[in-house]
Design a protein around this nucleic acid. Structure first.
Length: 998
RNA sequence: GCUCGAGUGGCGGAAUUGGUAGACGCGCUGGACUUAAAAUCCAGUAGAAAGAAAUUUCUGUAUGGGUUCAAGUCCCAUCUCGAGUACCA
């Protein structure tokens, strides 16, 4: 019986689906374990071999945990709202709902082929209304909450309202907008309802505000900070500009400190924690208030170096700072205005591109130094960012390089306030080795003491205080897009109101035109009928009937990260229609025990999800405030791009010829490709005469075919030598494992290559290779379906693990897959050498037990340490050893199969059932290794040791065990090392090493 | 610039976390089977030297130093590469 993987895999995939083998129950006597993958965006391209890497790893872990006796939750779903899905729909001219549905089908088909043990009964899709109902519901909870800094948690806004009625807001310590005014109870009561609502909005955890946003005209929407990379949009790389728009925001900044503290409690990769830490950007310092000469307004700055306050020689405001227009004097008005215009027109990218150019303008105004009372000129400059701190800095040129450069450029004074420091060339920013000078009452102090004293002095003057500043900004939550969750919001008197929870979900309406608009009008504005009012049971027009009155609805939609910020909780109770998940389910599963996904979500999804989880925890809806205990970032699988070299000018498709090259474009009707090493030789100018003649011949042949008179006179030998060639990506499926182009397939791949000519080396056309990101446009995508077809899903699973450490980026190279193929075949042959199963019930030998228990121990360790790659090696060794021992004993093979089954479930199931078992192998118990056999298998006598006394002695090889012991104990080195203690254990490695455990 | 991480055969990568470096796989070389090829199986494969051979001896984990009986592993310095981040006051 041949090992027919296609048949076997289809059979067991069907079996698992029909029997619902991997369905998890929400209660069980077994301990629970929750293994989660980051759910995919169903994009149009389908899966490539890189995508399932993390899924395979988590599947192995999930299957292993089941064998270990855990009740395992291992769900999967789709993040089906958001930009990628919509962009694909726009490109293909179809409705996003349709393309999403199709893409999901493709994904599901591809995933099913790999044999995952997902519990599909819990599938979620963020674009399903019974899911986004609860996304909308969470939004309402956020709207109805504020962050109380005293209690350090979110609390209902209604509570705030009560306090305002009794004593105003003097004693409220909450996260809120900076511009909240102080009021007492009578004042609060005197405000109109609308005024009260506007004030409350400044406290809510989600709020509407006119804010500077990152506007991407090409995508027709605003983007969050984490959706912008290097000043352009992450999706598509379009330019992004600053723009003021009325937007919903999430007050994530309220949770900055807790998001930071929480990192200590979770087992996530350090680089990922680091990048969240940097993104949150906590810095300790002081807020200092400067009076402005002749104005009532003050300038508040944030500084981490209050100790350098006597070194201030000017102030700098961001051009967007609100005080600029108020304080600029008549004389400087025009120049300042021009400068503001100029900087506002620059895109984020331009601003980043020339950080070196120093620019700014003097406002004509002066601030007053809090201690010396000297006048300090106030400048504006775009090196000061409006979005960080207060958008204003006290400039200390001797202690900060940017201030220094600015001062040098505009010829401003650079007073030195440090002892024994030369600042003639650059600023001195080292705060550890500083002694302050020229600074009145802090002379001679170091950074720490000086800072302390300055803050105390500022507090007495009421001109400053200790402050912790965060870089983390509130997250913009509105998107001017169609394919997202509608807000459960309508407007009354221009004040947003939440739609009553009983009306949820607010269904995304059908629209004629869902394309984004350049000016930012949301596509939902095109809807004629959408919100459904259950009370009146009527469909209404672009408005919502709330009892009797008609009000306009919010037309923006939520961003892609809304749905992904809580989905892990939904899996626990995926079909609940009365709660996002029941209390019982939440209390049972609690949190994700193992979360696997890419590191690219570090400052996006993974931060937002932590934020929402903490919020839901504060309100008592979830039992834990971190949603994932352990997280692993799987590395990217890279593609091996292949290139062919086309001689420049021989294609009718080629563009303009470079200078000094006689253009022969258009003369030939086909392409000439040269093999890699010949191309290299041409590049080095070392082409041999024969090859050169051959190229010439082909070119001339073509010229003749085209009936062209290039040969004589017009083209000389020299022309061809100067010809260039362009490396072109060629589809990797047209190249075999030894980098050889399959010429016939290549010719048939495109009409224009049909008559192509090839200059070969050793009768082969060799392509060049380069490792790049796997992508359709680079023609280096390897489809997992093909691998399953040609090698089987078990091979794919084993090979993806075998490629290298899970967390590392690594190139895909199909060539090596024959290794794991061989393993599976050998495993099969161990049971079925010929036509039928041949199994013996004899008691295994010690050697056979050794192999088995070594494998059990190693694989268990590997899985626990997530080093799945080395397990595959262990399996290969085991099978090789057992083959050599001709071992076909049941007592060895059964436990071995159980150990292999998480990695290669299909072949394991098949053999398991051939051995006469009626139940799936996933119901078996992971075997326990027997130390007895392990000890004997070790090269050392005992397998492990944990003492400290280890040293080497040179001993003859031919001594008996007793003799060795004797010599070791009487050796001067031993006596010196153990100092009279009695050794518990002596470990002797044949040859030289002695380990003595004392 | 800053912050992490990594440098081991022709290649992907192992190494019980301080204890026989190079497991396992690919590739390559030789052999068996075959008319031949593919497939399969067997053997060899870090480098150098010696030997008819089994085998032996050196040298080797980016570079230079250090700690230790013992270093790929720990410490210091240097170089190279990768990832993230960037006017953060």
């Amino acid at each position: 019986m041949r090992y027919n993987y296609n048949e076997i895999e289809a059979k067991w995939q069907k079996y698992w689906a029909e029997k619902q083998t991997f369905k998890a129950e929400n209660n069980s006597d077994k301990p629970k374990f929750y293994v989660l993958d980051m759910f995919p965006y169903p994009s149009g391209a389908g899966l490539h071999v890189g995508h399932p890497l993390g899924y395979i790893a988590s599947d192995i872990y999930a299957r292993y945990k089941r064998l270990k006796g855990f009740n395992v939750l291992h769900p999967q779903g789709y993040d089906s709202f958001g930009l990628p899905a919509e962009q694909y729909a726009i490109q293909t001219g179809q409705h996003p709902a349709i393309t999403t549905e199709e893409n999901i089908k493709t994904y599901r088909r591809q995933l099913d082929k790999i044999g995952f043990s997902f519990d599909w009964s819990r599938e979620v899709r963020t674009s399903n209304s019974d899911y986004y109902k609860w996304t909308q519901w969470i939004f309402i909870q956020l709207y109805n909450s504020y962050y109380c800094k005293d209690a350090n948690q979110a609390r209902p806004v209604s509570e705030l309202n009560e306090v305002f009625n009794i004593e105003g807001n003097f004693r409220i310590n909450a996260a809120c907008d900076d511009d909240v005014i102080l009021f007492d109870a009578p004042q609060w009561k005197s405000f109109s309802k609308k005024e009260q609502q506007i004030i409350l909005a400044k406290y809510r955890l989600t709020y509407l505000s006119e804010s500077e946003v990152n506007w991407c005209p090409a995508l027709g929407t605003v983007l969050a900070n984490d959706e912008i990379v290097n000043g352009v949009s992450e999706r598509g790389g379009h330019p992004v500009v600053r723009k003021k728009m009325m937007q919903w925001s999430m007050r994530i900044s309220a949770y900055a400190q807790r998001l930071l503290d929480g990192l200590q409690t979770i087992d996530w990769p350090q680089p990922l924690k680091d990048s969240q830490t940097n993104w949150i950007g906590r810095s300790e310092g002081a807020s200092v208030v400067f009076q402005i000469n002749g104005h009532a307004e003050m300038i508040e700055v944030f500084t981490t170096r209050p100790d350098t306050i006597f070194g201030v020689s000017f102030m700098t405001l961001a051009p967007e700072h609100e005080l600029v227009s108020k304080i600029t004097t008549e004389e400087y008005q025009q120049k300042v205005q021009e400068y503001i215009q100029k900087t506002a027109g620059r895109s984020e990218r331009e601003r980043m591109a020339d950080v070196k150019t120093i620019s700014g303008e003097f406002t004509g105004a002066y601030a007053i130094h809090p201690f010396t009372e000297k006048l300090i000129p106030i400048w504006i400059g775009d090196y000061v960012l409006a979005s960080y701190g207060t958008g204003a800095v006290m400039s200390v040129p001797c202690g900060d390089q940017r201030d220094y450069d600015f001062a040098k450029h505009f010829n401003l004074p650079i007073p030195n306030i440090f002892v024994n420091v030369d600042i003639s060339e650059e600023a001195f920013s080292d705060k550890e080795n500083t002694i302050i000078a020229n600074s009145d009452f802090i002379n001679g102090l170091n950074y720490k003491k000086a800072t302390q004293k300055i803050i105390e002095a500022l507090e007495i003057k009421n001109q400053g205080k200790r402050k912790i500043n965060f870089r983390l900004r509130d997250a913009v939550f509105s998107r001017q897009r169609y394919w997202g969750e509608p807000f459960p919001v309508f407007y009354k008197d221009e004040i947003p109101q939440m739609i009553d929870e009983k009306h949820l979900p607010i269904i995304l309406p059908e629209v004629e035109n869902y394309l984004p608009t350049e000016d930012g009008r949301p596509p939902l504005g095109n809807a004629t009928h959408w919100a459904w009012c259950t009370k009146t049971n009527s469909v209404v027009s672009n408005e919502l009937i709330n009892n009797t009155t008609i009000f306009p609805l919010e037309l923006n939609t939520m961003p892609g990260w809304a749905g992904s910020s809580w989905y892990f909780n939904r899996y626990m109770d995926a079909h609940n229609s009365t709660e996002f998940a029941s209390k019982e389910a939440l209390n049972y599963w609690k949190e994700v025990d193992l979360y696997i996904g890419g590191a690219e979500h570090a400052t996006g999804h993974l931060l937002y999800a932590r934020f929402w989880q903490k919020f839901l925890f504060d309100l008592g809806y979830v039992p834990v405030d971190e949603f994932a205990k352990k997280l692993i970032n799987q590395g990217m699988i890279l593609g091996m791009s292949a290139f062919v070299y086309r001689i420049f000018g021989t294609s009718p498709m080629t563009g303009t010829a470079p200078e000094n090259v006689k253009p022969i474009r258009g003369i030939f009707t086909t392409d000439i490709f040269v093999s890699k090493n010949i191309a290299d030789k041409i590049e080095e100018g070392k082409l041999d005469f024969e090859t050169e003649k051959e190229i010439l011949r082909l070119v001339n042949l073509q010229a003749n075919l085209a009936n062209n008179k290039l040969i004589e006179g017009e083209s000389t030998y020299g022309d061809y030598l100067s010809f260039d060639f362009t490396p072109l990506h060629v589809d990797v499926s047209l190249v075999n494992a030894s980098d050889e182009l399959i010429i016939e397939a290549f010719k048939n791949s495109r009409e224009e290559y049909k008559n192509a000519e090839f200059i070969l080396e050793n009768d082969k056309y060799i392509v060049s290779r380069e490792v790049e990101k796997m992508s359709k446009s680079k023609y280096n995508v390897v489809n997992p379906d093909e691998i399953c077809e040609q090698h089987g899903a078990d091979s794919l699973r084993l090979f993806e693990m075998f490629l290298g450490p899970l967390e590392q980026a690594k190139p895909w190279n199909t060539a090596g897959i024959t290794g794991v193929d061989g393993f599976l075949k050998k495993l099969w042959k161990l049971y079925i050498p010929n036509e039928t199963l041949e199994i013996s019930d004899e008691t295994p030998s010690a050697d056979e037990f050794k192999t088995l228990h070594k494998t059990i121990k190693k694989v268990e360790e590997d899985i626990e340490n997530f080093s799945f790659n080395t397990s595959v090696s262990t399996f290969m060794i085991a099978v090789n050893e057992l083959t050599a021992l001709k071992c076909n004993k049941r007592a060895i093979l059964e436990p071995l199969l159980i150990v292999i089954s998480p990695y290669a479930p299909h072949i394991s199931e098949e053999l398991w059932s051939l051995l006469g078992h009626n139940e799936s192998i996933s119901k078996a118990v992971f075997p326990i290794f027997d130390a007895k056999y392990l000890v004997e298998s070790s090269k050392m006598y005992p397998i492990s040791f944990n003492g400290k006394m280890k040293f080497t002695l040179e001993l003859p090889l031919d001594l008996s065990k007793d003799e060795i012991q004797n010599r070791v104990m009487n050796h001067p080195k031993t006596i010196k090392n153990i100092e009279g203690k009695t050794p518990k254990n002596i470990i002797i490695v044949p040859g030289k090493i002695v380990n003595i455990v004392v």
